[in-house]
């Protein structure tokens, strides 16, 4: 069962909806027992970085999630701010991130003609040749992005996909059992369905 970690942020129904269409068992939950039994985890996130970190901390689930991810090595997928939370922190706020990956989160630079937040569909470029999460992505794939801050992994090897918005940035990151996507696969038609299907069925 895939546990979608519920800390009352964002559109969790959409993630569950797509997983259900894929035939994957999932549950939106903050119940430590259910999360303890989950064999995969999705960490969503939307809106302000600090609000997300505070929301997640308020559930008291961080020690359990850390144990699951770092010790049990359960596959985890962070989505949007959920991916940003995997790093050390963000330009956007003062809260520390989970620190599970060596990532900083930076604000898009002010560039002429580039509006922030970035909101829209973008093409991605595969930078990792065989990561199971992203290797099946087709050349015509496009994903829905909405963000003002972007993932900046310290080790370029952790970058799975890049996208462009004035600058080239990491659209997906991954290391061992941990992965994150800046875009919203649950809102990216068959392209997102394919990616979530990889996560649900594959062994990241």
């Amino acid at each position: 069962m895939i546990a979608i970690v519920d800390y009352e942020i964002g559109n969790l129904a959409a993630i569950a909806n797509m997983l259900h269409r894929l035939g994957a068992a999932c549950e939106i939950t903050a119940d430590p027992e259910k999360i303890g039994r989950a064999d995969k985890l999705i960490l969503p996130g939307n809106g302000a970085f600090d609000a997300c970190m505070q929301g997640l901390r308020a559930t008291g689930l961080i020690p359990l999630l850390t144990e699951k991810v770092l010790v049990e090595k359960v596959p985890l997928l962070g989505i949007c701010v959920g991916a940003q939370m995997l790093g050390h922190g963000s330009d956007e706020g003062r809260e520390a991130g989970l620190g599970w990956m060596d990532i900083q989160v930076k604000r898009f630079p002010d560039l002429p003609g580039i509006r922030v937040p970035y909101m829209g569909w973008g093409d991605v470029r595969k930078t990792h040749p065989y990561h199971p999460l992203t290797q099946g992505i087709s050349d015509d794939a496009r994903f829905y992005f909405v963000h003002s801050y972007y993932l900046s992994p310290v080790d370029p090897e952790d970058v799975l996909l890049t996208a462009q918005h004035g600058i080239e940035f990491a659209a997906a990151v991954g290391r061992a059992n941990i992965a994150g996507v800046q875009f919203h696969p649950e809102k990216s038609h068959r392209f997102g369905k394919q990616l979530l299907g990889q996560f649900a069925g594959g062994r990241p």
Binding site: N11, A13, V146, R190
Partner: peptide, 27 residues
């Protein structure tokens, strides 16, 4: 919302945060 695998915006009659929260919970 259950039919939408793309972003959806809804407008009409929204005056409060509580309504917005309920709408976002709708998907």
């Amino acid at each position: 919302a259950g039919e939408c695998f793309m972003p959806v915006a809804y407008g009409g009659g929204i005056k409060t945060l509580a309504q917005a929260r309920r709408l976002i919970r709708c998907g």
